[in-house]
């Protein structure tokens, strides 16, 4: 009898896990009278100087010297901030989008969209793509190396929003003209919302991804602008995150068919 109770207990626990995991899954549904958020991200102060790195491995492909710009601004507007509407569980499909890395190099983050995020990381000219982006849990990411030299992909889960404590997830060679799919699994992320990508062979190849589970995100452009559409009406918290500058949140109310304008202001002090 006691054994039966134990088995029943385990079954209940199992069911709870199943329900809990299903509860977090994003569901695509038509959005009626969806609203939108738009705005700009501002940076006050002088951005940190770019990191200058002398290229040791493959200078014929990467160049002899490279720079890593961690905070990119133009006239005070911050590009590369990830804007995310938190807590949405149903809504529009994932959009098709592509973001290029800062030159030199032609790295790209391409989001295939549809029922899943479908991130493809194209590496070309020793460039993984833009400094920031997003990634989805349990959604395979395709890493494609279009260079004639090897890169060693090293991904980390950041236990905080700014990469103070990092935990290795993948660590593997990405051979010339080769590609591979890697998944950021729940048990490896362990609740982390930030992922860092580096190349062990090229210190200047660094990218930061925010973990998302729905398509209601945007990345600020060179004028600091962002826009998110087709948001189901309701009250939400909007997150603005930058791996160097930290994160900010603002509460919003999206009325049916309504538009909300937001402005986020980061400063150097937040990064220190």
């Amino acid at each position: 009898m006691r054994n039966v109770s134990v088995v029943a207990g385990f079954c209940c626990l199992g069911l709870l896990f199943v329900c809990a995991s299903q509860g977090n899954a994003y569901e695509i549904q038509p959005v009626n009278q969806g609203g939108g958020i738009q705005g700009q991200v501002f940076f006050a102060g002088t951005p940190p100087a770019p990191l200058v790195v002398e290229v040791d491995k493959g200078p014929e492909v990467c160049g002899k010297e490279r720079q890593l710009v961690k905070v990119e601004t133009q006239n005070g507007w911050l590009s590369g901030a990830v804007i995310l509407v938190e807590g949405i569980q149903t809504g529009k499909p994932f959009p098709v989008q592509a973001f290029s890395g800062k030159l030199p190099g032609e790295g790209e983050f391409r989001y295939q969209g549809g029922e899943r995020l479908g991130l493809q990381v194209k590496t070309k000219g020793c460039n993984f793509g833009p400094f920031t982006g997003v990634v989805a849990v349990e959604d395979p990411v395709i890493f494609e190396n279009q260079d004639s030299i090897k890169h060693t992909l090293h991904t980390f889960a950041s236990m905080d929003s700014k990469g103070i404590m990092l935990r290795t997830i993948h660590n593997q060679d990405l051979h010339p003209m080769d590609s591979m799919a890697r998944t950021f699994e729940v048990d490896k992320l362990r609740g982390s919302r930030v992922v860092r990508i580096t190349c062990n062979r090229h210190d200047f190849m660094q990218n930061w991804l925010y973990v998302v589970d729905h398509p209601y995100f945007a990345i600020s452009d060179q004028d600091g602008r962002f826009a998110i559409h087709q948001i189901p009406p309701g009250r939400y918290t909007v997150l603005a995150w930058h791996p160097i500058l930290g994160e900010q949140r603002q509460d919003v109310h999206i009325a049916s068919g309504g538009q909300v304008t937001l402005e986020f202001r980061f400063s150097r002090a937040q990064s220190e």
Partner: peptide, 8 residues
């Protein structure tokens, strides 16, 4: 930074 699990 503290990095855990890097065997590279």
């Amino acid at each position: 930074p503290l990095i855990i699990g890097n065997f590279y």
